[in-house]
Computed example of a mutant assay.
Amino acid sequence: MSAYNQSPGFNRPRLVTKEFLATPQSEGDGAVVRSNMLKFLDPFLMLYDFSVTPPGGFPDHPHRGFETVTYMLQGGITYQDFAGHKGTIHTGDVQWMTVGRGIVHSEMPAGEGTQRSLQLWINLSSEDKMIEPSYQELLSDDIPRAEKDGVEARVIAGESMGVKSPVYTRTPIMYLDFTLKPRAQVHQSIPESWSAFVYIIEGEGAFGLLNSQATAHHVLVLGSGDGLSLWNRSSKPLRFILAAGQPINEPVVQHGPFVMNTQAEIEQTIEDYRNCKNGFEMAKYWRSQ
């Protein structure tokens, strides 16, 4: 039975426990970012909602110790890194980057006008923090989708409405993009032990309870349970991301673009980056084009 076909009553339906608005601020080079700290929501770290207009963007910068999932909502982003990876993702495409022991890369707008994307930071367990960097790319046409009764689901990771994603995630993750037509509803199973949140891209909807309404740019942290019910009672479409993941249950120490388990590891990472060693060797000579 698909998650969609289940009755609204889960054994333990999830309710919204926290709600906060992602407010815009300047970041990078001329980019406007709505950011959300998700440190308390293991295994998630951050969610960014980027709007970038040329010549702005995100010039060369380092990372270590986690994964980034970049999902283009509008336009395109061209990326390149010091290991020779480069390319452009366009509207609806996904880049899943496992940073591992270290990467230096740039992310710049690929066209005129405003380019908009979501970027989710997912923690890695201590045993995976120093693995070699890797990429998975999913073009928009290759993202599995399901549609029924006014509900469309794009299954970037995990499973929904009987459809599974081919993406491999080191930390078990669900990442779903739902669009609900007016008066539509959906009931999505979520593994009971996983953390979960919703980010509303556009419209408004009721999440967890029929009488609760949330609007665009709000993050909704979900409590424990085995599924989420939601309704679009408005006259306009509702689009949102539902993300859930298996907690890692390890200490998190973050210093800007570096995420490790201890302060000593952070200090080692800063030293490695400054001295171009232990995964950052190519940073000594590389500059993006």
Rank of each mutant, 00 (worst) to 15 (best):
E127P: 02
E127K: 15
W121E: 02
S134F: 12
L139S: 14
S106A: 15
S140C: 08
R116E: 11
P109T: 04
P109D: 01
D128K: 14
I103Y: 03
E112S: 14
A110Q: 03
G102D: 04
E137H: 12
L139W: 09
D141R: 15
P109W: 03
E132G: 07
E107P: 08
L124Y: 01
W121S: 02
P109V: 02
G102E: 03
G111A: 13
G100S: 08
A110E: 05
V104I: 15
D128F: 09
S106L: 08
L139T: 10
P109Y: 05
A110T: 04
G100I: 08
M108S: 09
R116K: 14
D141P: 09
E112A: 14
E127A: 13
I103M: 06
N123T: 02
S126V: 01
E107I: 04
G111R: 08
R116V: 09
E132W: 00
Q115R: 08
M130S: 07
I103V: 14
Q115I: 06
W121H: 03
S117P: 06
N123L: 00
H105E: 10
S140L: 00
Q136R: 09
M108K: 10
L120Y: 00
E107V: 07
D141H: 14
S117K: 08
R101Y: 06
M130R: 07
Q119I: 01
E132A: 13
Y135S: 11
L138T: 08
T114H: 06
S140P: 03
E107S: 11
S117I: 04
L124F: 01
E127V: 11
Q115C: 14
S106C: 13
L138A: 11
L138P: 05
Y135M: 13
R116N: 11
D141Y: 13
K129D: 00
R101F: 03
Q119E: 07
N123D: 13
I103F: 06
L120I: 00
I131N: 12
G113E: 07
E112K: 11
S134A: 15
M108T: 10
S134C: 09
D141K: 15
K129Y: 02
M130D: 12
D142M: 11
S126C: 00
P109L: 01
G100E: 06
G100Y: 07
Q119K: 01
H105T: 08
E137T: 09
N123H: 01
E112R: 11
E137Q: 15
S117C: 14
Q119A: 01
L124Q: 09
S140Y: 05
Q119W: 00
I122D: 05
K129V: 04
E107N: 08
G113V: 07
S140G: 10
Y135I: 12
Q136A: 10
S140Q: 11
S106I: 06
W121L: 05
E107L: 07
T114F: 05
L120M: 09
G113T: 10
E107M: 07
H105S: 11
P109M: 02
S126P: 02
Y135L: 15
W121K: 05
E132L: 07
E137P: 00
D128N: 15
E127D: 15
A110W: 01
Q136S: 13
Q115W: 04
G113L: 05
G100R: 07
R101K: 15
L139K: 15
Y135K: 10
L118W: 05
Q115A: 13
S125Y: 02
S126G: 10
S117T: 10
Q115V: 11
L118M: 06
S134Y: 09
S125C: 07
G111P: 07
E112G: 14
